[in-house]
Design a protein around this nucleic acid. Structure first.
Lengths: 121, 121
DNA sequence: TTTAAATGAAACGGGTCCGTAACGATTCGC
DNA sequence: GCGAATCGTTACGGACCCGTTTCATTTAAA
């Protein structure tokens, strides 16, 4: 893929960050924490398998942080857990249909605000 | 300002969102909630005066939500409050030096990840 | 086989945030 | 002046998250 390089100003990136967060606050979706967002997108953007230990190492946080975030996002239906039958100590974090839709809506929100940003200048 | 329009793919915007959040989780700065981010950037990007009532209306949340977020961000030194002497019912939310530096670092983080995004493709 | 290591979850005390309702302080309208 | 409206805060009970420690389960090593 060959494309024009872009240069974003400070005002542009902050405006994008502001507009997207404002949209996320206003909508009916639950607001995820920064850690939850990072876990969710790691699971949905990167190749499996995903374990608690791997996620903790990647985010540089403790394992209970991952466990708790998975508890909450599990209740929300955004991810699910399954024992690894090959090594039953591991838990594999898996994607769900609702989680995929949630991520898709997030991408739409960001894209829309990015376009608005362009037309506002 | 006249510039080339850009088209971001779903993978690109999600990658940007992921990379920036990962950086925010890993660094030593406290992680702000979506509401706190929105309030902070509203105060720093838009023209004063900013009142509790105005922020609540803009974010479409209740006033106690704003009060609590200002309490927390006040402790962090990111914003400060002052009585409006013209109408002493109002509280004016003001910027701080530390808050300005925080916002500046946020902009840097986003910009860096946006550049990485470009070079990764 | 028996001990050690690894994994994820649970327990704990403390803090923050939630939505709602009630509350003082201040200003406006009559 | 006096009651109504407005503003921001506080109080309440409940839920979630924090970091740390402890635990049960499972696997690997000796």
């Amino acid at each position: 893929m060959n494309r024009m390089s872009i240069q974003l100003t400070t005002a542009e990136v902050l405006g994008l960050w502001h507009n997207v967060h404002l949209a996320l606050v206003r909508d009916d979706e639950p607001d995820l924490s920064a850690r939850q967002v990072t876990i969710l997108l790691t699971v949905y953007l990167e190749a499996p398998p995903h374990t608690v230990r791997d996620l903790a190492a990647r985010l540089q946080v403790s394992k209970p942080v991952i466990t708790r975030a998975l508890d909450t996002m599990g209740k929300l239906g955004l991810v699910s857990r399954r024992r690894d039958e090959k090594d039953r100590r591991n838990v594999l974090i898996q994607r769900t249909v609702d989680g995929a839709l949630f991520v898709e809506r997030l991408a739409d929100t960001i894209s829309v605000r990015a376009q608005e940003l362009r037309t506002d200048l």
